[in-house]
């Protein structure tokens, strides 16, 4: 179970959320000029990243708002939570204070042999705070 830090509501269980797929897939500027293959790639083709992946999430049983999240698909480490429309932050940005507390442990990986070093980027304390840390919700 992931603990996801909703920008509006604070930490909540993964079951309150819906996954929205890859983030930053922009609508083509001139869809009429695309050929069938390019259109199909826009519609259906998504990255299958091993490692840090930007994805959309919807807090469907809470505030019903969408947000973006950077998540490591190997370790399930949540590295950043940022609003829709914002550019993807660099992976060096430390995670929101509450993000992913349930899943940084190495035993939450599905691969078992993953090196633990991958989570180091997200947990370095005391550096620049992203402006999108979750407010002190009722769950804090």
């Amino acid at each position: 179970m992931l603990l996801i830090s909703c920008p509006n509501c604070g930490s909540r269980d993964e079951t309150e959320f819906h996954y929205g797929g890859q983030a930053h897939v922009s609508y083509p500027e001139n869809p009429n000029e695309l050929n069938d293959r390019e259109w199909a790639e826009y519609l259906f083709y998504r990255d299958n990243t091993k490692g840090t992946f930007a994805e959309r999430w919807l807090h469907s049983t809470g505030c019903r708002q969408w947000f973006n999240m950077l998540r490591d698909t190997v370790t399930y480490d949540i590295q950043a939570v940022y609003p829709m429309g914002a550019p993807r932050p660099s992976t060096a940005v430390p995670a929101a204070a509450e993000a992913g507390t349930a899943s940084v442990a190495a035993d939450s990986t599905t691969t078992g042999t993953t090196a633990p070093g991958t989570s180091a980027t997200s947990t370095s304390p005391g550096t620049t705070k992203s402006g999108i840390t979750a407010p002190e919700g009722a769950t804090k």
Binding site: R12, E16, T61, G62, C63, A138, T139, K140
Partner: peptide, 24 residues
Amino acid sequence: CALDLHPRSFTPGTAVSTEVGNIP
């Protein structure tokens, strides 16, 4: 309900939209 319902964090006069028994 997975929220922290302890009085120190969930005080009288607060309301949250969440899941209880798997339903919203």
